[in-house]
Simulated assay, not measured.
Amino acid sequence: MHPEGPAVSDAPLLRIEGLTKHFHLPGGRVVHAVEDVNLAIDRGHIVGLVGESGSGKTTVGRTLLRLTEPTAGRMIFDGTDVFALSARDMRVWRRRLQIIFQDPYSSLDPRLTIAAIIDEALDTRGLPKGRARRDRIAELLELVGLAADHATRYPHQFSGGQRQRIGIARALAVEPDFIVADEPVSALDVSVQAQVLNLLEDLRRRLNLTMLFISHDLSVVEYACDEIVVMYLGRIMEKGPSRALRADPLHPYTKALLASAPQPDPTRVRTHVPLAGDIPSPISPPSGCVFRTRCPIAIAACATRIPPTRDLGGGRSVACLRVGEGADHPPFEMEAHA
């Protein structure tokens, strides 16, 4: 499910520079949700953002849409710094930036018909009422694999997968250029997950959509995305093309995520990566490398130095003192074949 990808312009559609988000709590405590994240997403590509719960993935997505305001950083979207826009100007830009929510049950108003739910989104485009609206709603439903006559039904009359298709139709109603898909299949059965993932890939191809796909499941991200970004406790650990990262993970955290993912190959012998304990609190993150308290190859320097991001070429980068050019690290295999 990883084509070479559509042709893109030289400049990425979206570029994040130094994105930081802190939440201030009573008593002077600070939640370090996101720290100095840099990321570029090319037009027509799906980039997966993956990590455990508490890694800051959803905060990144919500901040890009300005559903929460950044503490620092820039977001250059199609040449404009979206973080610098006024609230009034942002209302216009929101039509270009949309979200697909995680829970298809709570994200749809149970009091409204499907037509009314999508109609609310169409209001922002100023589309005239009447036949044009009805035709557009029918077109959107058919685009996501539903029937036009489903428009008169209510959310409770649909399955979870169908509700998520309705949520996708609502997001597409304003013809966005960029979509944040926040765990869009995590609440669905495995068989339905594949159907929704295939739908998103089809829509990307047909509409040239650009998407940030957020998930805790690396196997899902690897299936759905052109590029994978691995995040831990607010920081990016590794980035790379999906196939390359899957075939040769570099960061010990990436290897741990891959080791924990289900594998359908019965001939593959898994050598589990030690990953003890829970993710630390973002209120008091570890000094130096935030992953060091769970890392099986950490050294003393990891406690005092924040690893720089090393550009390894081929679209790959890693933030680890023991991985990269000139780094001295022992073999760290994740799995082997029998």
Score class of each variant (00 low, 15 high):
E52L: 00
P307M: 15
F332W: 01
A7H: 03
E139W: 11
G326D: 12
P155E: 05
G326E: 09
P176V: 13
D311N: 13
V37F: 06
L141W: 03
L127P: 01
D42C: 05
R165C: 06
D177A: 13
I137M: 05
I306N: 12
V144I: 07
R111D: 07
R111V: 13
P264W: 01
L39D: 02
Y223F: 06
G126P: 01
D217S: 05
P110E: 14
P249C: 10
P308V: 11
A303E: 14
L209P: 04
A132K: 12
P307D: 14
V192W: 12
T254L: 11
S191P: 04
A87Y: 09
T80R: 14
Y223T: 02
Y223N: 07
L172W: 00
A181R: 02
P155G: 12
D248N: 13
A338Q: 13
D217Y: 12
E183G: 09
A336C: 05
R88D: 14
R96E: 08
L49A: 08
P285D: 03
R134V: 07
I16D: 07
E17C: 11
D42Q: 14
K129T: 10
M75N: 05
R204F: 00
Q164N: 02
A181T: 06
A194H: 08
Q195A: 13
V269K: 09
C320G: 09
R43Y: 07
L67I: 03
I76C: 01
L257Q: 00
G234E: 11
E69C: 03
R170Y: 06
E201A: 13
S106V: 07
P6L: 09
W93R: 15
H156M: 02
P241A: 10
P286W: 08
H337E: 14
F291H: 02
F178N: 02
K255Q: 10
V318R: 00
L13E: 04
L312W: 03
S53C: 09
I299K: 15
A173I: 07
V180S: 08
R131Q: 07
L143F: 11
A336H: 14
R292G: 04
R316F: 01
L19V: 08
S287T: 13
Q193M: 06
I283N: 01
T210N: 03
M90P: 05
P70M: 08
K239C: 05
C302W: 02
T210Y: 07
M75Q: 12
R43D: 11
A194K: 13
L65K: 12
L143S: 11
L97M: 15
M231Y: 02
P176K: 11
R235Y: 04
R125A: 14
V196W: 09
S159N: 05
V269N: 08
R322A: 06
L19H: 09
E142L: 01
D78I: 15
R305E: 15
A261H: 00
H32C: 08
Q157I: 00
P12N: 01
D109H: 03
A115Q: 00
P264T: 06
G28R: 04
L65V: 08
R246Q: 02
G79A: 06
H337Q: 15
E227S: 13
I179Y: 04
F23P: 02
G167W: 03
I118S: 03
